[in-house]
């Protein structure tokens, strides 16, 4: 763990390595032996690193640069590329479909984040008490997390089927006319949010539960002795001390939220009428449906830049609200 802060560890290693005071008594023999071992280490390092470095270079770094290069061209993946400079980017920024896709993605996050956070927090608080069978309960809540997005999307598409789905049937029993869910442009994104929140609730719960367990019991005890009630303790003690976990959940949710694809693809296909078209779905259709690889690559870079910027802003902004005990 201490080696995680590599620069420091390395500097320390260097400082006592070549320092003359330490080297003097060991003499030259030892020194050349050591550097020979180091030279040998270099070859070993190459051998040990190559199997992981080569695929990463070929299938992550190279395509990353490739995406940048392609984004500066007009290209349908078949005929020769033609240089358009930043044309794809300016075209994208002006394209209402791009803005709509970012808007839908934000809408997704606006629905999804409060749902999973409040739900996950409630569950974590409940499971953090002396509850009977809480290991089993935690297992049940976590089960959707390991299920694939496609299965989640298909099962929810079936549950939310407007005419023969169980949800609308149940609503009808109590006299409510259920909405058209994924067939209705006004409800398609809500359907995706519902399915996604169901899948990720257990994940948020596990993160927050770990955070809760790290809160020292005597702090809570002290607050209780001082006469703070349940809400007061939650608001003034638990939530501030839980803020690092909350921060993690928010950052990860935003990163994953901007990349949402599988469940939308399988549940609504971006429809109806593009009402649930999200950014990655748009990248996919631009490249593989409309043959606009250049624009698709530009959009993927744009997405990466947005996610990176938001993450950096959050990391900078965390000082304002994240308390590290």
């Amino acid at each position: 763990m201490s080696n995680l802060t590599t620069p420091v560890g390395r500097a320390a290693g260097r400082a006592d390595g070549p320092s003359p005071a330490r080297r003097a008594p060991t003499g030259h023999g030892r020194r050349t032996g050591r550097s020979a071992a180091r030279r040998r280490d270099r070859w070993w390092a190459l051998a040990f690193l190559l199997p992981s470095a080569l695929p990463l270079a070929l299938f992550v770094l190279l395509p990353m640069a490739g995406a940048g290069w392609i984004s500066l061209h007009e290209w349908n993946l078949i005929s020769p590329m033609s240089w358009v400079g930043l044309g794809n980017y300016t075209e994208l920024v002006r394209d209402p479909a791009t803005l709509a896709a970012f808007g839908h993605t934000l809408g997704y996050l606006a629905g999804y984040l409060p749902l999973v956070y409040v739900g996950g927090l409630g569950l974590a608080l409940a499971l953090n008490t002396a509850l009977k069978g809480r290991t089993v309960l935690r297992g049940v809540y976590f089960l959707p997390v390991v299920t694939s997005w496609i299965v989640v999307a298909l099962v929810w598409r079936w549950l939310l089927n407007p005419s023969v789905g169980i949800v609308n049937w149940t609503l009808a029993q109590i006299g409510i006319q259920g909405p058209g869910w994924w067939t209705d442009p006004a409800w398609s994104m809500a359907s995706v949010v519902l399915a996604s929140a169901w899948k990720d609730l257990g994940f948020v719960m596990v993160i927050l539960l770990a955070g809760l367990q790290a809160i020292p019991a005597d702090i809570l005890e002290a607050a209780r002795v001082d006469g703070a009630g349940w809400w007061r303790r939650l608001w003034s003690v638990v939530l501030p001390l839980l803020s690092p976990s909350t921060f993690f959940v928010v950052v990860i949710s935003l990163i994953n939220g901007f990349q949402v694809f599988d469940q939308v693809y399988a549940m609504t296909g971006g429809g109806p009428n593009g009402s649930s078209d999200v950014v990655v779905l748009r990248i996919h259709s631009l490249a593989f449906r409309y043959g606009e690889a250049g624009t698709a690559s530009a959009l993927s870079w744009l997405l990466f830049a947005v996610v990176l910027a938001i993450t950096l802003v959050q990391i900078r902004g965390q000082r304002r609200w994240v308390t590290y005990a």
């Binding site: 990463l56 992550v60 770094l61 995406a67 290069w69 694809f261 690559s297 993927s300 990466f304």
Partner: peptide, 24 residues
């Protein structure tokens, strides 16, 4: 430095790579 580059690849989402990866 190499380790930092490894870690940096974690930041890059697959979605950014699909088009050039397909071409490759």
């Amino acid at each position: 430095v190499i380790f930092a580059v490894y870690l940096a690849t974690m930041m890059i989402p697959l979605q950014v790579l699909i088009v050039p990866l397909f071409v490759e």
